[in-house]
Design a protein around this nucleic acid. Structure first.
Lengths: 172, 172
DNA sequence: AAAAATTATGTGGTCGGCCAATCAATTCGA
DNA sequence: TCGAATTGATTGGCCGACCACATAATTTTT
């Protein structure tokens, strides 16, 4: 291959061909995050759902009629994201919306009867996904992974937003 | 709140308000994946990059001129995704493309000189992201997390695609 | 009671990412 | 040699997710 003679503009060294961009954890999270989402997509596709929607539907199945703002808080998503998800879910018949009589700004959201049949299948799909994800790990390893992910979640949540109001915790 | 009387269509029990949808690991991966991506976005925004683009640029900075198909293989992304990323990166002046003289189907991609100045900043941003991510974890915990993420990656990769060509491995 | 701040939602736009389908160029096989 | 299969890249469409901004209704403050 003659490439690398004068066509290479930025080559700072030998082509390393390996893992560029240090940060084993970040790297792992990125890759696993994407793969996991794809796996979820695959499982949910047969149910007529897109990944992300399962959380929203579970909220509705669990809580019944709920204000959109409440949904946003629980899902910790951007309001505009939830608005658009609901528009699509409404059009696909999974969700119904109506104005909240108590507050003319608000919207009440609920799952349609039709959609309730999906609940079990979604739960089973999610179980299969979990199973597939942690296959080959011991109970102790699974617990440790969950715990470490929880720690990382706290790290990423802090300063980014307002997960648990720190309010002068152990340090300050 | 009077909701829950007759408006509740699917309520199968009490409003649990807690973590619906079992699967501690899956749940953690979803949340951490999203938070991590947002954190990356925040750090990269100042550099004029969107999350995901940093991997592509690192490939180019490292390898010089590269065929698009090679890029696709390394990034393990859908070809159409890479095509569109490159169109945007070209328009924003980070990347240049030209036909491959050796194969008239192929396209050679390289980073522009301008973009090379970003490399160090991207690497530093990525380091800060890693630091932020694993803050508070011991060395042992960090190593364990990376290891476990690697295992999960293998799980999710297998059957989903063709990461390491199995070709009659230890089992078959 | 009127003005100011906050809340609830929606719009428009941008990206990464996927799938399905297309088309040209190259390679393989009969 | 010539048709068939494969490879390289693109287009169009869809979704989740973000941001910035806008609007209406409610709450708070003065």
């Amino acid at each position: 291959m003659r490439a690398g003679s004068e066509t290479t503009e930025c080559s700072t060294g030998l082509p390393q061909l390996d893992c560029l961009l240090d940060g084993p954890t970040s790297r792992g999270i990125s890759r696993v995050g994407r793969l996991h989402r794809m796996a979820a997509a695959k499982l949910l596709r047969g149910l007529g759902l897109y990944p992300g929607q399962e959380f929203l539907m579970m909220c509705l199945w669990e809580a019944g009629a709920v204000r959109q703002s409440e949904l946003i808080k629980r899902l910790e998503l951007d309001p505009s994201t939830v608005t658009k998800m609901l528009q699509r879910l409404e059009q696909s018949g999974h969700v119904r919306r109506r104005p909240d009589p108590a507050d003319r700004r608000a919207v009440l959201v609920e799952a349609t009867e039709r959609s309730c049949g999906l609940r079990q299948e979604v739960e089973r799909a999610w179980e299969r996904l979990e199973e597939h994800t942690v296959t080959g790990l011991s109970e102790a390893e699974r617990a440790e992974l969950s715990r470490l992910l929880g720690r990382v979640e706290e790290n990423l949540c802090a300063q980014t937003a307002d997960c648990p109001p720190p309010e002068c915790g152990p340090v300050c």
